[in-house]
Design a protein around this nucleic acid. Structure first.
Lengths: 196, 196
DNA sequence: CAAGATACTATACAAATGTAGATTATATAG
DNA sequence: CTATATAATCTACATTTGTATAGTATCTTG
């Protein structure tokens, strides 16, 4: 998606950036449901017909914005390189995503309230895809033998994002440290059985 | 939610049922984004002003409909009574939810495509809540000692729904049996360590 | 069953939506 | 730099949305 973006006309990229920035700015003030396409275009200083040349409605703009946010999150938060220790890999990823979304808490909340697919929900599909590639590495597969790698990816991505969504949405029912510590309990240990 | 429904005026329940039925019927033909409130009201034979007396927009009607669907799913699929074997509990629940949603595949797909919160996503919050109550049972807690019960609930609910969503959305990449068998690998075993 | 409450209908209207066609401005390739 | 393609603007219009107000039908309570 990002690479296809770069092949866009300069004018198109400019227009989309203006619209996304306008949306983010307006979401700090009003909930998504109360924003009109007209509002967004006025703030973005883009003609309304131009808007419809890019997006079929405001929902589509929201998804486009979330898509970019997720890409940034994935790039930033998922550890690069070979997985030598799956347990550590998941813990690092979870903590980073938690921090990433916490730092954008206002925007995250606005998206959750918007009734559209939440950032976390869309993130899950991305995260699962990324995890799938990494989980396919032989190093990792040793830790969950006989398991379909995509099933493992979906399982851990879903569990991870579910916990993150819960933690961000609730009013901090437990500390981040406790959450991560509990999460680690469920993770496959490396060549050994669960410790206590 | 359901119990508050029953306290509604007869006329209101009738109107809501007509609107929900109209929505479900129309979703068999067009994607949600192409439905107008006017369309829905014509099909439902309900005046448009009446619609707005119940829901602020079509998204809200969609959520209302999904809410009912989820309630039915929870009631139907989650095993009742005391949990004597957590592993079996999760497996039964997963299989039943899978079957429940499979039987409503057209509607499920339409909701996923609608860009609104998917049924599965909203289901997750419900399922987690329900699981939380059951996981609080001492019988279950023995199997995951020292774990915050709500964290366990969110973890398993997220993982379970993630797999279900994946399985329903993809074009059946694996058999249902393999999915369940793999899922069982991740479940806490009863008073013993992970088997190999 | 009658009275009062309240939900539905009807009409009207301002605002927003989504689209079509013509014109202007700008990016890109040669 | 220039020609060409194409994106953005502008205008106009039919449709939809969301709301306000008044009248009609229906439910519920006593």
């Amino acid at each position: 998606m990002n690479e296809s973006e770069s092949h866009l006309d300069l004018r198109q990229r400019k227009t989309r950036k203006l619209l996304v920035d306008a949306l983010i700015s307006l979401l700090q003030q009003k909930p998504f449901s109360q924003l009109s396409v007209t509002d967004i275009c006025q703030t973005a200083m883009v003609h309304r017909t131009t808007f419809y040349a890019h997006f079929s409605d405001k929902q589509e703009l929201l998804h486009y914005m979330l898509h970019q946010l997720e890409q940034e999150c994935i790039d930033t938060c998922l550890p690069q390189g070979t997985i030598t220790n799956p347990r550590e890999y998941f813990l690092i990823a979870t903590e980073r995503v938690l921090d990433f979304l916490s730092a954008r808490h206002t925007l995250y909340k606005a998206c959750v309230d918007s009734g559209a697919s939440t950032a976390a929900h869309m993130l899950e599909d991305y995260a699962a895809q990324e995890l799938y590639q990494r989980i396919s590495q032989p190093q990792f597969q040793k830790t969950v033998p006989h398991i379909h790698p995509e099933i493992a990816a979906r399982f851990y991505a879903g569990a991870m994002l579910s916990l993150i969504r819960w933690w961000l949405s609730s009013d901090v029912p437990v500390t981040k440290e406790l959450l991560l510590q509990n999460f680690s309990y469920f993770l496959p240990s490396y060549e050994t059985q669960m410790e206590e």
